[in-house]
């Protein structure tokens, strides 16, 4: 790369400037990657988010427990016959966020409802066994969920989400 007197070779000169500018721009953009990605969960946080196991034996019918997975409260409810019936005797299409109770529990395990206990409105934690449907009631702005964790009234837009989980035995589930 020898330097020719520049005014005679405007194209070569322009090429050099554009090349320098673009290389510098690429470098600056690449340097931003670590500066931004450091905000993602670090390796220990990811490792701590591994699946957890929950033993269901201590939960009597009509009771529920709260466990934490990845820092989120998970409600595990042992539903009564009546609660299950209540959840099933609704016209799904009439719900704000239509979803059948079947789709929210594991087949053959109708009595176990597992939902993430975070109100889909703005993230408060609803109270179990409260509200007019005997499901969950969020005290923050009055969202009411039914015994399947579906939104029935109030400002929350969607049902309480069901976390990924499976039954590892009849009395044990693995969340995550």
């Amino acid at each position: 790369m020898t330097t020719a007197s520049s005014p005679d070779h405007p194209t070569r000169r322009d090429f050099l400037f554009v090349a320098t500018g673009s290389v510098a721009a690429v470098g600056a953009a690449a340097a931003l990657v670590p500066l931004v990605l450091q905000m993602n969960p670090d390796a220990s946080t990811i490792a701590a988010g591994a699946p957890i196991e929950v033993d269901l034996t201590p939960i009597a019918e009509g009771q529920d427990i709260k466990v934490f997975w990845r820092g989120k409260p998970i409600f595990v409810s042992h539903r009564t016959k009546k609660q299950i019936e209540d959840a099933r005797n609704v016209t799904v299409a009439s719900l704000p966020d239509p979803e059948s109770d079947d789709a929210r529990v594991k087949p053959g395990k109708d009595q176990w409802l597992v939902v993430i206990g975070i109100c889909t409105h703005l993230g408060c934690i609803p109270i179990a066994h409260e509200g007019q449907y005997d499901g969950f009631f969020c005290p923050c702005h009055g969202s009411v969920y039914d015994t399947s964790g579906r939104i029935r009234s109030g400002p929350a837009p969607t049902n309480l989400p069901v976390p990924p989980y499976q039954f590892v035995s009849d009395t044990k589930i693995q969340i995550g």
Binding site: T3, S6, F17, T20, A24, G27
Partner: peptide, 20 residues
């Protein structure tokens, strides 16, 4: 590799500009 490339380019750019 990147910095050597950039430094080289900056050197020639600087030289061109200062030539005037």
């Amino acid at each position: 590799v990147f910095l050597i490339l950039l430094t080289g380019l900056l050197y020639f750019t600087k030289k061109k500009i200062w030539a005037d």
